[in-house]
């Protein structure tokens, strides 16, 4: 049913992603689908890397660990954004298109009043891409 799964990851909160990561792995193994882990970074130095190159290396390392753990091949895609606090959804939507993914599996929070002002990334992604989106509550 699915051939390419995209898994957006926030490396700063990798500890909160385990359910989504496991769900993505289950889908991948069940449908024998390829998995791409995608992360969004700024050009400026940050806690996850002092430049996009370092960030991409960290993301690749993270993905390799996932691949080894679940036993499948992985790809990564580090998207560079001028303003990731705001452009995250757009960057992810672009990554879905460029990767040709037909399923997105991602973690999302329990909605609260803040979602009226800033809707969840998963929700926005579902309304801005053709791919199926599977949201996993932490």
């Amino acid at each position: 049913m699915f051939t390419k799964i995209l898994v957006p990851v926030d490396l700063a909160h990798a500890d909160k992603l385990s359910r989504a990561l496991d769900a993505a792995a289950d889908f991948a193994l069940h449908y024998k689908a390829a998995v791409t882990y995608v992360g969004v970074t700024a050009e400026t130095p940050g806690s996850l890397g002092h430049n996009p190159k370092e960030y991409a290396e960290r993301l690749a390392q993270f993905a390799q660990e996932q691949g080894k753990r679940h036993g499948f091949e992985v790809e990564t895609r580090a998207v560079v954004s001028h303003d990731p606090a705001v452009d995250l959804d757009k960057s992810l939507a672009r990554a879905v298109k460029e990767a040709g993914a037909d399923l997105v599996v991602m973690a999302t929070h329990v909605p609260n009043v803040a979602d009226h002002f800033w809707p969840s990334h998963g929700g926005k992604l579902a309304s801005h891409t053709d791919a199926s989106v599977f949201l996993v509550r932490g």
Partner: peptide, 23 residues
Amino acid sequence: SDDGIPAPEGDAALIETDYEIGQ
């Protein structure tokens, strides 16, 4: 190491510090 500062894109002279942004 992971805590240090690797190169930006292409050659650049780096400052080595243990400070991690956001710490």
